[in-house]
Amino acid sequence: MIVSENNTTNLPISNGKLAMWLFLATEVMFFTGLLATCMLLRESAPFPGTGIPHWPDQKTVHVQPWLGAVNTVILICSSLFILLSINALKAHKASSSLFFLGTSLILGTVFLGVKAFEYKGKFEHGIIPGNIGECLPGMSVQREKLLQQNGLAYVRKVQTQLRIICVGVTNDNLKDQSDIIKNAYALYLLTLDGKDSQNDYMRPLSPAQLGEKVNLLLAEFPQLHLPPAIPNGNLWASCYFALTGVHAIHVLFGLAFMLGIFLKGAFGKLETMAGTLEVTGLYWHFVDLVWLVLYPIIYFL
């Protein structure tokens, strides 16, 4: 790195640190942009039919605040340990510095592990953007008629899944099936286009009715993994995955840096990395801070 020639008006901090502060300024803008987007979408999210803003509550989308709390603690500890590591290195205690760094690294990894566990839960419940049914009770018949065309996408999705589940099932062999298949098949029959030809739009089951039925069925047989129906669920999932995903990527980068330093340290060269470690610490605190903002917004609001 090229050092500045003496100029009294230059800033009294190192280039690396200055650059990291600047980089964090860009990061602040990035997360502000993303968070503002999500908050705005949330505030203007319509309640089907009534126009009252509505947002899925934590239960319906299977968010567990205690998991988030665990993760928060983990990340704060990790941030703390990297601070200890930096201090230890300043006091020229390379080995304890390395130990603290390693702890911080492991905690960060655990954070990602918990995150992965949470994601897995979401996937299992079909809470994936674009897969969640949205036409639900509370929507006026007229409104639904208007949105019928679009709600049909959901009907067809459920229908296809049900058909796959019920492959080979006919009225004749229905008796031999398990309860779960019986229920699924019953629902499948309901989704079929029927005799009702008075109304252009009214199929045997409207998206809203189907959504209701699917939710009931899911409550009974969670292993069915049909797309659930959650008002504004798609939007919620979009925001959730965008926010936490972007944050997880930041964690990943931080971990990569720390791993690099740790490996160097493992070969006894930690002292040469003092500046890098400090800058990485700065970054890591920032990642922690972002999580502290995200946590209440995602898990409690």
Binding site: L41, P46, P48, A153, N234, L235, A237, S238
Partner: peptide, 22 residues
């Protein structure tokens, strides 16, 4: 298939229909 810019009612392009977004 997130729905950041898909309006609540979804869209119709001839025979193509999107899911409702929000």
């Amino acid at each position: 298939a997130t729905s950041f810019f898909l309006p609540p009612g979804g869209l119709s392009f001839g025979n193509w229909h999107t899911t409702p977004g929000g």
